[in-house]
């Protein structure tokens, strides 16, 4: 299991990433900082450290899984396919389950 990773950039804020508790029993996804200007870039940075987590969140084509949702600063993202929504440098990205999946 990889250790909790933090990307420190001196003098610059970095987006914060947090995952639903429900994913943790399958694959440990600790809260962490991950650099990027879009949701795709932030997740790519995060999954570089925890590769197995990627397929729990994204489908085979790299889109957000049908019954997952992502919020950036408490706003649900609009682009579930390319994950192109912007992430502020001090933003928070939250990956949670949608109730739609039962």
């Amino acid at each position: 299991m990889p250790s909790v990773f933090l990307i420190f950039v001196i003098g610059k804020a970095v987006p914060h990433v947090r995952f639903t508790d429900n994913i943790q029993r399958h694959v440990k996804c600790p809260a962490a900082e991950a650099q990027g200007e879009t949701v795709r870039e932030v997740l790519t940075a995060y999954f570089a450290e925890i590769p197995f987590a990627k397929n729990y969140v994204l489908d085979d084509q790299g889109a957000l899984r049908k019954h997952m949702v992502i919020f950036v600063n408490s706003q649900q993202i609009a682009d579930r396919v390319k994950l192109s929504d912007s992430v502020p440098s001090d933003g928070t990205v939250e990956i949670i389950q949608a109730l739609s999946g039962g």
């Binding site: 429900n22 399958h26 397929n55 729990y56 899984r65 019954h67 997952m68 389950q97 949608a98 999946g101």
Partner: peptide, 25 residues
């Protein structure tokens, strides 16, 4: 796993322990 998609696990010791392996994608 529903929300989290399909996954594959294997055991090389008769089921004493399991490890996640790649899943067909």
């Amino acid at each position: 796993h529903g929300h989290f998609g399909c996954k594959m696990h294997r055991s090389r010791n008769g089921g004493k322990s399991w490890e996640e392996c790649a899943s067909p994608a």
